[in-house]
């Protein structure tokens, strides 16, 4: 369970996240949606202790994220940010193997190799395993980073827009993969998503943010209502039901 108690983040006079109280249940896929600047990524960064809070408390299974040792948390929670620029020149396999660092530090074991190979397989990366990251396209690189996070094998995995740079096939594949991680391996997946239709089709729970606050939350059926989404995104939306799924049309 991820608990947030009156969490705020302030930059100078600007309140980016404004007293958020939120409880994300263990298990399942939770999507955070909302317009630009709603504070989604900031919230995710604070949950994963990448960004200090101005006020408030965040706990992962009761562990205070600001006080718990980094390596303890790293075996329980993993995070992928949007922008992953790095100076080190690594192959895909090297990068993915870093996911095992919280467990074995610098002494990789045979078991680590199994984890690495499995993560590479999940994301169709075996053919690219020995390529350098700077030789890959944006989408391939994005998949390599997701593989690293999966390789970390934590109960909680947080992703900030994991579908960035992915084509349709890989975006849908990615969401199916995360769905599978939640259903078969009992992982808790938290995503920041821009495409609300992906959120609608693959989530168990949707949290909608607006202006630093949680504006609405609930099951996809409850959130995917024309009135709710129009209010949140300030844009006229029509909801259609296609093959049993609610799809928002806003084009």
């Amino acid at each position: 369970m991820i608990e947030l108690k009156s969490v705020s983040k302030q930059y100078g006079d600007t309140l980016v996240v404004d007293g958020v109280d939120l409880t994300l249940p263990k298990g399942g896929v939770t999507s955070i949606i909302g317009p630009n600047g709603a504070g989604k990524s900031t919230l995710l960064s604070m949950m994963s202790r990448l960004l200090p809070m101005s006020t408030g408390w965040i706990g992962i299974d009761g562990l205070d994220v600001t006080k718990t040792r980094g390596d303890v948390l790293a075996r329980r929670l993993s995070i992928l940010r949007q922008d992953n620029h790095m100076t080190a020149r690594l192959t895909v396999r090297d990068l993915v193997a870093f996911g095992r660092y919280p467990y074995t530090k610098d002494r990789p074991t045979g078991e680590d190799k199994v984890h690495v190979d499995r993560a590479l397989g999940f994301l169709d990366l075996q053919p690219l395993a020995d390529r350098f990251l700077d030789e890959l396209s944006g989408g391939q690189r994005q998949r390599a980073f997701v593989a690293m996070v999966l390789c970390q094998d934590t109960d909680y995995a947080l992703f900030d827009e994991p579908l960035n740079n992915l084509d349709m096939r890989h975006a849908a594949g990615m969401m199916r993969l995360l769905r599978r991680a939640a259903d078969h391996f009992n992982k808790t997946i938290v995503l920041v998503l821009h495409d609300i239709n992906f959120a609608s089709c693959y989530s168990d729970h949707i949290v909608a943010m607006k202006a630093g606050k949680v504006a609405f939350q609930g099951a996809p059926d409850a959130v995917m209502q024309a009135s709710v989404l129009t209010e949140i995104f300030n844009t006229d939306m029509a909801i259609h039901e296609i093959a049993g799924r609610k799809i928002a049309v806003f084009y």
């Binding site: 202790r49 990448l50 980094g70 390596d71 992953n84 790095m86 100076t87 080190a88 870093f98 610098d106």
Partner: peptide
């Protein structure tokens, strides 16, 4: 080596 991945990745991996 982990620090060379950048601040966010290093923290995420427990450094």
């Amino acid at each position: 080596d982990v620090l060379a991945l950048g601040r966010d990745a290093a923290i995420g991996l427990g450094v």
